[in-house]
């Protein structure tokens, strides 16, 4: 075997390595992609069940440009999504929505549940945050703060285009109205940030969904746990 010319050897090596590596990556991607997608859907569904007590099935809807809601496959990630939760009989329990905004350290992402019966936010769950452990993270654990979201009023005004009373953050223990959020002393910025996020998101979403729960009626093949 005679030694190949250096240029040929180099090209051969790089092309060979490229082909092998490309093959390995594609195989790994093809093998794991369905599992990863399933994990994602499951995680999201678990979060929806948590903020909508009583729900046992979910379906995903997308807000269209014309303001209508359209059922989309559960693996959809892009666009303005709303997750409907249904009880065992197929009745609508409520809608879950994602919101995000700047917290103390970094962006906080959360999901919250809206109940059509109460016309209020009935639960929140933080999905992602890098708040200070033991201080900012109390927004996830503090029972008094969480009680803000037992029934946070988001009813619409007479015209149905805006919230009757915008969600408002107030100092700890100063909550008087159902649309106010009691902040936590020592985690003021984090707890305020969450109230603001909910306010922005609700102001955008409530006019689109609150008046018409029928648009979120259970489609065929809703995702059951």
């Amino acid at each position: 075997m005679s030694a190949p010319s250096p240029a040929l050897a180099m090209t051969r090596t790089l092309v060979g390595a490229g082909v092998v590596c490309g093959f390995l990556i594609v195989v790994a991607y093809e093998l794991t992609a369905p599992i990863i997608q399933e994990n994602r859907i499951e995680a999201r569904q678990a979060a929806v069940f948590e903020v909508l007590p009583g729900a046992v099935a979910t379906a995903t809807f997308q807000l269209q440009a014309d303001g209508s809601l359209q059922a989309v496959p559960d693996e959809t990630t892009a666009g303005d999504l709303v997750f409907a939760g249904y009880d065992a009989q197929g009745g609508l329990v409520g809608a879950a929505l994602e919101a995000q905004g700047m917290g103390y350290q970094d962006t906080i992402r959360l999901i919250y549940g809206y109940s059509f019966d109460k016309d209020a936010i009935i639960g929140i769950k933080v999905l992602e945050s890098r708040e200070t452990p033991g201080l900012g993270t109390r927004v996830e654990t503090d029972p008094v703060y969480q009680a803000n979201f037992d029934a946070l009023d988001v009813s619409l005004d007479a015209a149905g285009q805006a919230l009757a009373n915008p969600i408002e953050a107030v100092g700890a223990g100063k909550k008087q109205h159902p649309w106010q959020v009691d902040c936590i002393t020592g985690a003021t910025i984090s707890s305020k940030a969450i109230a603001n996020m909910l306010g922005t998101s609700a102001a955008k979403w409530m006019p689109a969904i609150a008046a018409r729960p029928e648009a979120l009626a259970r489609p065929e093949g809703a995702h059951v746990q």
């Binding site: 790994a28 093998l31 794991t32 992609a33």
Partner: peptide
């Protein structure tokens, strides 16, 4: 890249 996908598949 392979490890990245493997971890995502094992635990999100």
């Amino acid at each position: 890249t392979v490890v990245d996908y493997a971890i995502a598949a094992i635990s999100l």
